[in-house]
Computed example of a mutant assay.
Amino acid sequence: MQSTADEITSLVGREVYSNNGVFVGEVEDVRLDIDSRSVTGLALTELNGELFRNRVQSGEGAIVPYRWVRAVGDVILINDVIERLESDEEDSGEAVA
């Protein structure tokens, strides 16, 4: 259990980029499912202003579903969030953050 906790806390502070190389934000915290002992989301701050314009108020953060994560290393790579945000917005008619 200790190594799992260490792995989870090591995510905090890492920069998050889309697989197309676009900076998304920085991990401030993680969202956990206690029952399954798994990470379900990454709480991001220092968001890319262009990417989240009109979706998140200045100074606020966003939670990215962990299922979007493609790789974890020195940085975290996620599926192309720009395409996802645009397609989610078109599908639902609402902004997604």
Rank of each mutant, 00 (worst) to 15 (best):
W68V: 02
D29I: 02
V69W: 03
E50W: 13
E86K: 14
E90T: 12
R37V: 05
G21I: 03
V30T: 07
I8L: 09
E26S: 13
V22G: 02
G21R: 07
A97E: 05
V16K: 01
V24E: 03
G25D: 02
S38I: 05
N19W: 05
G21P: 02
P65C: 09
R55H: 10
D80M: 08
L47Q: 00
D6Q: 12
G61V: 01
E90L: 15
D35N: 13
L44K: 06
M1S: 10
L32H: 07
D91H: 15
T40I: 11
S87F: 09
E60Y: 13
A5I: 12
V12W: 06
V16A: 02
V69S: 05
V27A: 04
D80C: 12
V75S: 13
V56P: 02
L11F: 07
V96L: 11
A5N: 12
P65F: 09
G25L: 06
N48L: 11
E60S: 13
R37P: 01
D33R: 06
D6I: 08
R53W: 00
E7K: 06
T9E: 13
A97R: 08
E7W: 00
E50D: 15
G59N: 09
E15A: 14
L51W: 06
G41E: 01
A5P: 03
Y66V: 04
T45G: 15
A5E: 12
R53F: 04
E83M: 11
E28L: 09
D6L: 13
V69D: 00
S87E: 09
R53G: 00
S3I: 06
E46C: 09
V39T: 04
R84D: 08
L85C: 05
A95I: 02
E86A: 14
M1D: 04
V39I: 11
T45I: 15
A97W: 03
V30W: 01
S10K: 15
V96T: 12
G25I: 03
T4V: 11
W68I: 00
R55T: 04
A71F: 08
V96D: 01
V75H: 12
N79I: 07
D88R: 13
D35S: 13
